[in-house]
Amino acid sequence: MSVRYWMLVLLAWFGLSFSQNALAATYRCSSATGQVYFSDRPCGGTSDAATGGTKLGGAGPVEQGDPRARAYSYTPTIPKPPEHAKYLVGPCAEMEEAIRTAPVRGIQGQTLRSLYEDYRTKCDYQVREAQERVNADKREQDRMRTEQRQMAAAQQAEGQRLDNQCANMRAVIADKRASLSTLNDRQRELLQNMQDNYNRTCINRR
């Protein structure tokens, strides 16, 4: 046989070997704790058994479009701005937003550190002033809540006082009416005045 024939046989054998190795290059496995990892050996093999690896599905490479692989992808989210951010203005407000949204825009490393250092250097005073305004807002809210509680307590105390007063007036009126025939004209007049005062103060008060 010619050298050309053997060269073709060797090339075909190497191509087949490479194709088989490529197909079995990546396996998606899970440890005993449920952590997903990828291996170049079948799940549950000698190297994976020691760590509790288990095989998921059929052996073979994970397809790029496999939804199981996409389910574990991490997508960063934009965090909520801090309370004092609403009081920042101009470049400081822009830098605060740029730092907060950096992960979703792929900004990290030295670029992010430089941005943060610039923000800390140029906006330290404005940030502290904005934080003090937030604290002042909270103090004002606390003051208003305290005043509301005090007003509610005062109204409750006044209501209790009027309840007691009306109860006493009812008792006196009932006692006087029980002995109405023994009252003189002046006493009857005082009783009528008390009755009128009770009607104005106590009837339909609530």
Results as ranks from 00 to 15, higher is better:
residue 84 H to N: 06
residue 119 Y to S: 03
residue 17 S to M: 13
residue 46 T to P: 10
residue 148 Q to P: 03
residue 137 D to I: 09
residue 12 A to T: 10
residue 102 A to M: 05
residue 78 I to K: 07
residue 62 V to S: 10
residue 99 I to R: 07
residue 89 V to C: 01
residue 150 Q to F: 05
residue 6 W to G: 06
residue 105 R to K: 15
residue 20 Q to S: 09
residue 175 D to I: 03
residue 47 S to T: 09
residue 205 R to F: 03
residue 128 R to W: 08
residue 33 T to D: 14
residue 96 E to D: 13
residue 171 A to S: 10
residue 23 L to D: 03
residue 80 K to C: 00
residue 136 A to C: 01
residue 88 L to K: 03
residue 141 Q to R: 12
residue 79 P to T: 03
residue 64 Q to I: 07
residue 41 R to A: 06
residue 174 A to W: 03
residue 100 R to G: 09
residue 53 G to E: 04
residue 114 S to H: 00
residue 196 D to E: 12
residue 21 N to V: 07
residue 136 A to P: 00
residue 192 Q to E: 11
residue 110 Q to G: 02
residue 171 A to R: 13
residue 159 G to H: 15
residue 181 S to W: 04
residue 141 Q to W: 09
residue 111 T to E: 15
residue 47 S to G: 01
residue 165 Q to M: 06
residue 71 A to V: 00
residue 191 L to I: 02
residue 160 Q to G: 10
residue 4 R to H: 05
residue 7 M to I: 15
residue 46 T to S: 12
residue 19 S to H: 03
residue 51 T to G: 13
residue 180 L to W: 08
residue 154 A to P: 00
residue 160 Q to A: 14
residue 175 D to Q: 14
residue 24 A to D: 09
residue 95 M to I: 04
residue 70 R to T: 03
residue 159 G to S: 13
residue 206 R to I: 08
residue 112 L to F: 11
residue 121 T to A: 13
residue 50 A to G: 15
residue 47 S to P: 00
residue 133 R to N: 02
residue 126 Q to L: 03
residue 177 R to P: 01
residue 41 R to C: 05
residue 64 Q to F: 14
residue 108 Q to R: 15
residue 33 T to R: 12
residue 162 L to M: 14
residue 70 R to V: 00
residue 99 I to K: 10
residue 75 T to I: 07
residue 34 G to I: 10
residue 9 V to P: 05
residue 68 R to L: 09
residue 13 W to G: 11
residue 55 K to T: 07
residue 76 P to I: 06
residue 103 P to C: 01
residue 195 Q to A: 05
residue 109 G to R: 11
residue 183 L to Y: 10
residue 67 P to E: 06
residue 121 T to N: 09
residue 165 Q to P: 02
residue 200 R to M: 09
